[in-house]
Amino acid sequence: MVKLYLDFDNGLGEQSLDSLLPQFEVLSFLAEAPAINRETITIPRRHGVISAQHPRDVTYSSRKVTVEIYLNSKIHNNFYMLRHQLYALLVKPFAYYISTDLWPNRRFLVTCDGNFSIPKEKEKTHAVFSVEFTNITGMAESKHSTKTAQTQSGENWNIGMNLQSVDNLAYYFKNQKRFSVFNSGDVQINPLDHAYNVLLNAKGKNVTLINHTNGEKLTIEQELKKSQQVSFLKQYALLNNKPIKTSGRLPNLEIGWNEFEVQNTDDFVIEFDTRLYYL
């Protein structure tokens, strides 16, 4: 039996559909292929179309995730009650996460707007139907962040997540002026669209973080004490949770290896805390 897990971000964690409503059994889980939003132009006397953007600027649109489900109510009257229990469980005004054991350690942020029905044939107490979810980000994300060690022998990461042959990739660095950060996902990570944060404690003035892989850098335009922590909320840099002045932006993480450098400090610790994203 296929497992469907639901996480409504309500503190209860993920729960399987069959534990919440045992009369429902998931038969299949189908996510559409990723859908790219691509900007192109046409030029007179040139064949086809010309790409108008760098590949790193390509974005993904939402996509459908279709789950096929079997209901067996056993009793006619129960059919109607169970049908509406499922409607109430899945059709929400807010987005939530779904996942499946077929694709472990990944989850989809979805909405379900109720574009499905569960018809009952006269003499039958069972039915097969499909529920359509909308994966609003257009991609899956890892259930765990880089704070959880990426080991191939554990239960938090698995084959198919582009793991390296060496366990325990480093995302925490102390007084190491140059270091490498690995993005094992399929998507460039940026703080506006993704759960991506950097935690920095440093002593110095105009401390600068550079990603030499893509040329992006951030400078904190004030003097820092080692006891103060800099973090990030989308495009904002925060010092002890209060906005501070910066130039540039928190560097994105390109797919694969990212070569970083920290300047204007010799006394610092830095940690990259991000989920990874898959197509």
Rank of each mutant, 00 (worst) to 15 (best):
Ala149Tyr: 04
Asn105Gly: 05
Thr137Glu: 13
Val58Met: 14
Arg56Ser: 15
Ile69Trp: 01
Ser153Pro: 01
Phe94Ala: 10
Ser153Ala: 10
His84Lys: 11
Ala52Ser: 15
Ile118Gly: 00
Tyr80Asp: 01
Glu123Pro: 00
Val65Lys: 04
Asn78Ser: 11
Asn105Lys: 12
Ile50Val: 15
Glu155Arg: 14
Phe79Asn: 00
Lys122Gly: 06
Thr40Asn: 12
Lys124Met: 07
His84Tyr: 14
Phe108Ala: 14
Ile69Asp: 01
Lys147Phe: 03
Gln150Asn: 07
Leu71Tyr: 00
Thr125Leu: 00
His47Asn: 13
Asp113Arg: 08
Met139Arg: 12
Leu86Ile: 08
Phe116Glu: 02
Arg106Gln: 12
Leu82Val: 01
Tyr70Arg: 02
Trp103Gly: 04
Ile75Asp: 11
Cys112Ala: 05
Ser51Pro: 04
Gly138Lys: 05
Ser62Pro: 02
Phe116Gln: 02
Phe133Cys: 06
Leu89Asn: 05
Phe116Lys: 01
Pro104Arg: 14
Glu123Met: 04
Pro55Lys: 07
Glu132Ile: 12
Ala140Gly: 06
Pro119Leu: 09
Glu141Asn: 03
Ser73Gly: 01
Asn77Glu: 13
Trp157Lys: 03
Trp103Thr: 15
Tyr80Asn: 01
His47Asp: 13
Glu132Gly: 03
Trp103Cys: 12
Gly114His: 04
Asp113Gly: 11
Asn135His: 05
Phe133Ser: 05
Gln150Phe: 01
Thr100Gln: 06
Ile75Pro: 03
Lys147Arg: 10
Tyr97Asp: 11
Pro104Glu: 14
Leu82Tyr: 07
Arg45Met: 11
His47Cys: 05
Met139Thr: 05
Gln152Val: 04
Thr151Arg: 15
Ser130Ile: 08
Tyr70Thr: 00
Ser117Asn: 10
Thr151Asn: 13
Gln53Arg: 12
Lys122Arg: 13
Arg63His: 07
Leu109Phe: 08
Asp101Cys: 10
Ser62Ala: 15
Ile136Phe: 06
Asn105Ile: 05
Leu89Thr: 06
Glu155Gln: 13
Pro44Gln: 14
Thr151Ile: 12
Asp113Leu: 08
Asn78Ala: 09
Arg107Asp: 11
Ala140Asp: 05
Ser62Leu: 08
Asp57Ala: 10
Gly48Met: 08
Glu121Gln: 12
Ser153Ile: 10
Ala52His: 07
Tyr96Ile: 08
Phe129His: 05
Glu68Ser: 09
Asn72Val: 01
Gly154Trp: 11
Asn135Leu: 07
Thr100Pro: 05
Tyr80Arg: 02
Gly114Val: 03
His126Gln: 04
Lys124Val: 01
Ser62Gln: 11
Ser99Phe: 05
Pro104Leu: 13
Thr137Cys: 10
Ser73Tyr: 00
Thr66Ile: 13
Thr66Arg: 07
Tyr80Pro: 00
Leu71Lys: 00
Pro44Glu: 15
Ala127Tyr: 00
Thr125Met: 02
Glu39Lys: 15
Tyr70His: 10
Thr146Val: 03
Lys147Asp: 10
Asn37Trp: 04
